[in-house]
Design a binder for these strands. Structure first.
Length: 590
RNA sequence: GCCUCUUUAGCUCAAUGGCAGAGCAGCGGUAUCGUAAACCGUAGAUGUCAGUUCGAUUCUGACAAGAGGCUCCA
């Protein structure tokens, strides 16, 4: 067994290992069923996963979900036959002979030999032999609850230069009850999908008349965004940032100097000719902020200099990768560039991290982890090993000082330096990069940035790129799903709806709205010709935090009857008291 | 981009190789109501472009948009 797999399995509990074995066996059953139905098929791989299992094969016919009943029927035959699963170790020669027609398996065998592991086969009765390290159940009859879920294409080794294989996803549980529960949760999760809620709550618009990945922030979404922006400005100002504005286009030369043009040209929109120069729609802000730095001589006394901007950038993302607000082509970053001395890097890094942690806490997010992005030998990077080593050391020093738990990820560095990312999971369990902190010793050099040190000599500053939320679009999507649309009071587009019971209450209700609005509360009146019950239902579905109901009782006594979106009746109270409650709740951002 | 699938009214969903049907929302009325859907009436749609056909929303193709995937180690 390989070291990696071994470590992975050791981390799991006994029950998890059994579930893993169950799913892996289900996958072998799927494979054998596929082999029976499509004899020319070549299996590439088929692991158990956190959610179930999948089967990758090279097959020359189209497989679609319409084929599932047929495949599942064939699987059931193998399960009913209760075939024993037995392991056998063989020599590389024998394995190569056995799988001589399957180039994928031959590749695996080479890998195993390279690692120095033993070559293990699993036999399913006498119907199938597969290269597999297991573990498996002792027989196929123990599989009770399984289902196939979807068909997808998957490149061999995930590399689009390789052949696209057919992948079938399925899942398997110990009991039918657990499987049903899993499928139910999946359905529940879909209800809080930001794409569904975003439309229902009128937060944003995506339409093919505008173009893929180009988000229109609708009035209600714009309010949420403005609240987030206000928080950012306020917090960053407290933390010593200076805010700037920069244009949406600039000369191509800027990104040639930065190196982005050479490495990421395919992510940028085609240059446009203006006068005699070529201009780009900006794919990132770094050059602009560096030009602001460079606009005057800088002293060590000016550092750290923190230049911030909530700025929209434009990137060409592949059509198949776009997804609601989670991946878009118009991206608004809470961007900043910190110019500092080498001595200041660790402290600045920690300062940014603390701010990022503050934001995560403020928004109540806990389903995230930290990923340290380092170089991998394959990718293209700027600079030499000495500089990289220095940047990596600085980041690790800072992380160790904070005693953070993180995952190392080779190949996930920025091209100019290592970085620490916050990875957040969405409602379907998919991972998205949000916040990022990047240490960069390269770009200051390429742009010729300097400061005068204490001895009067010019020196290079270090640059920290950072976006603690990442993009406001993605953040919005994450928030919608996190709160299932019921945003906390301070973020709610409409905070209070005032509901007059009958037409004669409209005037009083109007006055209450005025009073709330002059107290900076986002309040609206619902004076449509509808019953109170219908209005309550409507605004509850719209996730409006509070409903203030005005009827005869309230008209006489100058009070309001308050109901929350969760259905709680707070009874009748004076407006002043209600305002106090609102202010407190908004202040606490809870 | 590639694989599989999807596209009918603002939204949720029906139906059909021969006049496309409903609920909600909208609009016009009636009712003026105490904590999750009052009633009556009315208007509104087959993503785009080709092809097959007497006739296409339905079949075929292209395009567009959308969904789930695209290295959790044999």
């Amino acid at each position: 067994m390989s070291k990696i797999l071994d470590e992975k399995l050791q981390k799991r509990s006994i029950e998890e290992r059994e579930l893993w074995a169950l799913r892996h066996t289900a996958e072998h059953v799927l494979h054998t069923a596929m082999q029976n139905l499509y004899p020319k098929l070549k299996k590439a791989m088929g692991p158990a996963t956190e959610e179930g299992f999948y089967h990758d094969c090279d097959v020359d016919v189209k497989i679609s979900e319409d084929n599932f009943p047929k495949i599942e029927k064939e699987m059931q035959k193998l399960i009913d036959a209760d075939l024993p699963m037995t392991q056998e170790y063989v020599s590389a020669e024998k394995a190569r002979e056995l799988f001589k027609d399957n180039q994928y398996k031959l590749e695996w065998i080479d890998d195993i030999v390279k690692r120095g592991d033993k070559i293990s086969l699993y036999e399913m009765g006498d119907v199938d032999v597969d290269l597999c390290s297991g573990p498996h159940l002792s027989s196929t009859g123990q599989i009770k609850a399984y289902t196939l879920l979807s068909v997808a294409g998957a490149y061999w080794h995930g590399d689009e230069k390789n052949k696209m294989l057919t992948r079938i996803y399925g899942t398997c549980f110990a009991t039918q009850k657990e499987l049903d529960e899993y499928l139910r949760l999946l359905e529940e999760a879909k209800k809080r999908d930001h794409r569904k809620l975003g439309q229902q709550l009128g937060l944003y618009v995506l339409t093919n008349e505008v173009g893929s990945g180009l988000v229109l922030w609708a009035p209600k979404g714009a309010i949420v965004r403005r609240e987030i922006e206000n928080l950012i400005y306020e917090e960053q100002t407290k933390r010593g940032y200076q805010h700037v504005y920069t244009p949406h286009i600039g000369k191509k030369q800027l990104w040639q100097t930065s190196g982005h043009w050479d490495l990421y040209r395919d992510k940028m929109y085609a240059p446009m000719k203006i006068d005699d120069d070529e201009y780009l729609v900006k794919p990132m802000n770094c050059p602009f902020h560096m030009m602001i730095y460079k606009s005057q001589p800088r002293s060590y006394r000016d550092l750290p200099l923190r230049i911030a901007e909530i700025a929209s950038v434009y990137r060409y993302e592949k059509p198949g990768e776009l997804s609601g607000m989670l991946r878009v082509r118009y991206i608004t970053q809470d961007d900043a560039h910190i110019f500092c001395t080498e001595d200041q890097v660790v402290d600045e890094f920690i300062g940014v991290f603390d701010y990022m942690a503050f934001l995560l806490k403020t928004f109540g997010l806990t389903n995230y982890y930290l990923r340290l992005g380092l170089r991998s030998p394959k990718e293209k990077y700027l600079g030499d090993d000495v500089v990289w080593k220095k940047a990596e050391d600085e980041i690790i020093k800072a992380i160790e000082k904070k005693d953070l738990v993180y995952e190392r990820s080779e190949g996930n560095a920025a091209f100019y330096g290592p970085k620490l990312d916050v990875i957040v999971k969405d409602v379907l369990g998919r991972e998205w990069q949000c916040g990022t902190i990047q240490v960069d010793f390269m770009l200051p050099d390429r742009f010729g940035l300097e400061y005068i040190d204490q001895s009067g000599k010019p020196k290079r500053p270090v640059l920290i790129h950072r976006a603690p939320l990442g993009s406001l679009e993605r953040w919005m999507a994450i928030l919608i799903e996190h709160y299932a649309g019921a945003l906390p009071l301070w973020l709610s587009p409409v905070q209070v709806v005032v509901i007059p019971i009958a037409e004669r209450h409209n005037e009083t209700a109007g006055k209450i709205v005025e009073a709330l609005r002059s107290a900076q509360i986002r309040a609206e009146i619902d004076d449509r010709n509808d019953t109170m019950q219908a209005k309550i239902r409507n605004h509850t579905l719209q996730k409006v935090p509070y409903m203030a109901i005005i009827g005869d009782r309230e008209r006489v006594s100058d009070q309001i009857a308050v109901r929350t979106r969760s259905g709680k009746d707070l009874k009748t109270m004076y407006l002043e008291k209600f305002l106090g409650r609102l202010r407190k709740e908004i202040e606490s951002k809870s």
